[in-house]
């Protein structure tokens, strides 16, 4: 019986990891290609949630989760074109400061538009409740999220590994100078990567709005965990981030099973241990420009 319960926690942790993944993957991509630690990433997650709650009122949940990431990705174009682009070659501390500033501005903007109190959102009737497989229990809604994350993951992997777009991006991560020497401008690729990254964050926000509290500071709450995932996974590695997200979800679940009070601390301990053994993260590659 004890084993069954534990397995339940592991599976639940994997689902939770999937949700962290939506945020962390974009963060990792933007860092790998542009060299920018995007502290404003959480703000796009929050915007995704708010916009989706608004759209749900008029067009329903299905349209909301599709349109909200698109709207946020369009905002991402402006973000990349007018802000990030100026900082690719600058001291990293400057891009940290500017994205931190954007995060604060975005949080306040949300407060001005939607107000400080949280806004309400609910799961569509069809996805309420749990599914039982034998004695195994899954939240129906989380299964939906898991399916969406899997689809996104396959899509992004195919994009990066099976298209010419992906080849340029991957080459750009390792040797931007060489890509430039071949006569390819990386900037339009960077715009696309930022759109993809913030769009995924918004998708996470849209799907999590019904089961978490939608309030102005929600972006700041998620960004820490997303960073932990990116750091554990290692920069520049697609599967590193995937592995780390799952690991973080599972470790948290198991810790809560045995020692509830240590649940939130466990992921930082995990990060500490991984960095002790592998300073570059689990599957982090050696990237020349960051050494």
């Amino acid at each position: 019986m004890q084993f069954g319960f534990l397995l339940e926690q592991v599976v639940n942790g994997l689902v939770l990891g999937g949700y962290y993944l939506l945020i962390a993957l974009g963060l990792s991509l933007i860092f790998s290609v542009g060299g920018i630690v995007n502290l404003a990433h959480g703000a796009f997650y929050a915007l995704g949630a708010y916009i989706s709650v608004e759209i749900t009122k008029y067009l329903g949940f299905g349209s909301a989760v599709m349109l909200s990431p698109v709207a946020v990705a369009l905002l991402g174009i402006l973000f990349e074109r007018f802000i990030l682009r100026r900082f690719y070659d600058a001291d990293p501390i400057l891009s940290l400061l500017v994205t931190f500033g954007v995060a604060m501005v975005a949080e306040q903007a949300i407060r001005i538009i939607w107000g400080a109190p949280p806004i309400s959102a609910a799961i569509p009737q069809a996805f309420r409740g749990s599914v039982f497989l034998g004695d195994f229990l899954f939240s129906r809604y989380r299964l939906l999220i898991l399916a969406v994350v899997a689809a996104v993951l396959i899509g992004v992997w195919l994009l990066l590994h099976k298209t010419s777009f992906g080849r340029v991006v991957r080459a750009g991560i390792q040797r931007p100078d060489m890509v430039a020497a071949l006569g390819i401008r990386l900037q339009p690729y960077m715009t696309a990567i930022v759109m993809l990254g913030v769009g995924m964050a918004a998708l996470g926000g849209a799907f999590f709005a019904p089961i978490t509290i939608v309030h102005p500071a929600m972006g700041a709450e998620i960004i820490t965990v997303a960073f932990v995932v990116v750091v554990i996974g290692g920069l520049g590695s697609f599967w590193g981030v995937v592995l780390a997200a799952m690991l973080v979800g599972v470790v948290r679940g198991i810790t809560i099973h045995f020692a509830p009070a240590a649940g939130e601390a466990s992921i930082y301990v995990l990060m500490f241990l991984v960095l002790m053994v592998r300073p570059r993260g689990l599957l982090g590659e050696r990237i020349e420009k960051f050494e």
């Binding site: 319960f5 926690q9 939770l16 099973h257 509830p260």
Partner: peptide, 16 residues
Amino acid sequence: ELIATDVTDFSPYLLK
């Protein structure tokens, strides 16, 4: 169950 004030995901607690 004692729950830290920064917890936002309760699913592991709900399983318990």
